[in-house]
Amino acid sequence: MSAEVERAVRRSLADYCDHVDRYDVPGILALFAPDGWYDLGFGRVFRGPVELRALFSRVEVYRATSHHVSNIVVDVDPAGDAAISRAALYAYHVRREDDSEAHVWGQYHDRFVRAGDRWLVQSRTLRMAAERGTRPEGGRVTLYEPLPRGI
């Protein structure tokens, strides 16, 4: 059972990258549970399909993106109806307006729930290890909340 769940979670992570890179917002939304949410950090949490659609529609500012996940770890709840995953992320972006580039390195921390024969993202938290070329908002020095690190 856990190997089957891990395959489904890995597939969902790969499908997410593919849908984002093709700017397929309906495809992205189909990967999330109806009450799913996405936490970008600094209090920016997008809940439910309306807010998630608004978040993912912002990808149109990029002429191209390329998302890559690796180092995927999946832990399946003993009851078999939920799983938690951690995946390393590298994403490359080219802005439409001026062809400037942005690079981000970080991690997705996800909770998946079973929905019939599918596994959907219940929650996603994104934290960054590094950023280059991003445009921080609100007077912050980074666009994304940093990945917690030990001292």
Score class of each variant (00 low, 15 high):
11 R>S: 13
15 D>I: 01
12 S>P: 02
16 Y>L: 03
125 T>I: 14
37 W>D: 12
128 M>L: 15
31 L>K: 01
4 E>I: 11
7 R>Y: 12
69 V>K: 04
96 R>D: 06
42 F>I: 12
89 L>S: 02
70 S>A: 15
98 D>V: 09
77 D>C: 14
75 D>G: 13
108 Y>K: 04
129 A>H: 03
60 E>R: 12
150 G>L: 14
74 V>I: 05
1 M>L: 11
100 S>M: 06
125 T>E: 12
56 F>G: 00
151 I>W: 13
65 T>E: 02
51 E>M: 14
15 D>L: 05
147 L>W: 06
83 A>V: 03
48 G>L: 07
142 T>H: 12
26 P>H: 03
142 T>P: 07
46 F>Y: 14
34 P>R: 08
149 R>D: 07
12 S>Q: 04
65 T>N: 01
116 G>T: 04
56 F>M: 04
102 A>P: 02
116 G>F: 07
136 P>S: 09
128 M>Q: 06
8 A>T: 11
100 S>H: 13
2 S>I: 15
22 R>S: 06
104 V>S: 02
94 V>P: 00
136 P>A: 09
64 A>W: 03
5 V>I: 14
75 D>I: 14
34 P>F: 03
77 D>E: 15
89 L>G: 00
85 S>E: 03
138 G>T: 09
92 Y>C: 05
129 A>I: 08
145 E>W: 01
127 R>A: 09
104 V>Y: 01
48 G>K: 10
82 A>I: 04
54 A>R: 14
101 E>F: 02
84 I>R: 15
19 H>P: 01
56 F>P: 00
127 R>K: 14
70 S>R: 12
148 P>C: 15
74 V>H: 09
81 D>V: 08
132 R>F: 11
79 A>T: 14
99 D>S: 09
52 L>C: 01
22 R>N: 09
84 I>C: 09
62 Y>W: 13
80 G>P: 10
127 R>C: 03
113 V>E: 12
8 A>H: 06
144 Y>T: 07
88 A>S: 15
23 Y>H: 12
91 A>S: 06
31 L>N: 01
93 H>E: 09
